[in-house]
Amino acid sequence: MSQEATVAVSPGTEKKRQVKKPRGEPLLERFSALILAAFILLVWQVSVPLSGISEFVLPTPWAIASRIVTDFPLLISNAYVTLFEVLAGFGSAAVIGVPTALAIFYWRPVERAVYPLLIALQTIPKVALAPILVLYLGYGWAPKITLAFLIAFFPIVVATVVGLQSLDKGLVNLVRSMGASEWQTFTKIRLPAALPNIFGGFKVAISLSVIGAVIGEYVAAEQGLGYLQLLANSQFDTTLNFATVVMISGLGVMLYFILTFVEKKVTFHRESAK
């Protein structure tokens, strides 16, 4: 009883302490990743002229940054194209993947028939399908979206199935003892409990979708960041090439953080999961 009493006297202090903790860390530790990144960029910036490598071969970070600024309209208009492909591919993977996972979870025959097939298909490197997709779907949006979809689908399905399966059986008994229907069991227990896993799958899938879309553009495209990179290559424009790489990773990071933000809104903060 005594240890409860100490908590009970001041409800809320526990949580506040946890939130405050990172602020107490030394500055160097808090920003250690940023400091390391800045250091690497600095070494890069300084060593290019010192080593005598031509900026034509290896542009400095500063040159890349200024190129992004000067050619921003070109970069951003191509980024929109890639973003659209990623969102369409990822979105359809989520919209089809989550119900597929539900079907695998709820219906044994589906699990028996579909799950092994999915895992077998997963062993095919999706990027190897890109040329075939172009063959069938042409040069437009379709092959890129399809590739982004294919590459995102599997992690979403697996994460959702695992999330649904890992539910504590006691919770099912609990709501059944309250007279819950299977639909209520799903909405009140299964889905909320699986959400952290589902979002884990989404986060893996969104980064893969970016790869899928760009690979699709490498194979055949008239616009998009992948296309822009090939264009820069053909013109020996290394700086623009690097600038495009920065844009692609920026796109991935941005989408990842948007998902993390949505996750925080939709699910309960994860550290209290157990």
Binding site: D168, G170, L171, N173, L174, K188, P192, A193, T267, A273
Partner: peptide, 11 residues
């Protein structure tokens, strides 16, 4: 019913 573990929903 009260079960052996509290079975509270953490969310």
């Amino acid at each position: 019913v009260v079960f052996q573990s509290d079975l509270l929903l953490y969310w």
